[in-house]
């Protein structure tokens, strides 16, 4: 259905009958997208146990981010710019390793913590002050970051971890890693976009190996090899000394071939086809 705003726009701008036509076209699109999403046989139970093995990694990653944020808060209070920058980078690493699950499992917190470009709080707001303006007065921002990360950390032990959600997150992150960084990337002010990518790929690698690799090897060894080789290609790309030397074309190819492989893997694993955007299924 069209949103109220779309209806108003359509009522203002479309000829009589056009809204119905748009409705039908959009309905057709949604059907196609549902077909894209596919429907695997529901035999994912063995993966539930494997997904549990991801939990300690998740807790450790957010724990590292939280420890870094607390250190950042202290360094900011001491007006220690160099120390605050170092703590920000440390906190950021833990967060980026955890992006396989953050966007899909805690979208509201994710949007607050990783908002971009001119956020009021969160990593990038602090980045702009520390690395852009060269100011260490980020105490209140750091406090909000600590609070959000602490809130998230407290939920992790009991948070349900459906394998589908983790596959969705792995696929989304694999696609994102292949995006162009020609403009300096997401963390361009601090110059740490390549670190973001390395931590993202580490998260993808761990999630795949821990949760899905064994089951896929059993179901389709060739496909499992393909996934592994594409992850290895991503690792090779981001081993470059700096962002300008990352082979962007090879990175994008590896990213997309990994996603294509994981889409094919979902059927073999008895899971629906993974989604490519958070909050849409």
């Amino acid at each position: 259905m069209l949103s109220q705003r779309s209806r108003m726009l359509c009522a203002k701008n479309c000829a009589p009958g056009a809204e119905t036509m748009v409705d039908m076209r959009v309905a057709g699109c949604l059907v196609l997208l549902m077909l894209w999403s596919g429907s695997g046989a529901l035999k994912a139970a063995p993966l539930d146990e494997a997904a549990e093995r991801y939990r300690p990694y998740m807790i450790e990653g957010i724990g590292d981010a939280l420890a870094g944020a607390r250190e950042l808060r202290e360094r900011a209070a001491a007006n220690d710019l160099a120390g605050a920058k170092k703590a920000w980078i440390s906190a950021r690493a833990g967060w980026e390793r955890s992006e396989v699950f953050t966007a899909g499992f805690v979208p509201e917190l994710d949007a607050q913590i990783d908002a971009w470009p001119n956020a009021d709080s969160g990593f990038h707001a602090i980045e702009a002050k520390l690395f852009g303006a060269g100011r260490a007065d980020v105490e209140s921002d750091a406090e909000a970051l600590v609070e959000n990360l602490n809130n998230l950390h407290g939920k992790l032990r009991d948070m349900p971890l459906p394998p589908q959600g983790l596959l969705d997150g792995t696929v989304r992150l694999a696609y994102e890693v292949g995006e162009s960084k020609a403009d300096g990337g997401e963390s361009r002010i601090s110059g740490t976009s390549l670190d973001d990518m390395r931590n993202n790929v580490a998260g993808i690698d761990f999630a795949y190996r821990t949760i899905f690799a064994d089951a896929l090897k059993t179901a389709d060894a060739r496909l499992a090899d393909m996934v592994t080789s594409r992850i290895d290609q991503l690792k090779a790309c981001i081993a470059a000394p700096d962002l300008p030397h990352v082979d962007i074309r090879t990175l994008r190819r590896a990213s997309e071939e990994l996603v294509v492989s994981l889409q094919a893997a979902s059927a073999k694993l008895g899971l629906p086809r993974p989604t490519l955007e958070a909050q849409w299924r």
């Binding site: 705003r5 997208l33 949007a111 908002a115 971009w116 001119n118 955007e277 849409w280």
Partner: peptide
């Protein structure tokens, strides 16, 4: 996550998908 834009989240998500 883009802080400069509000509204149309589902529409944007579908377009990106």
């Amino acid at each position: 996550k883009d802080t400069s834009i509000s509204g149309g989240e589902q529409e944007r998500s579908l377009a990106r998908t």
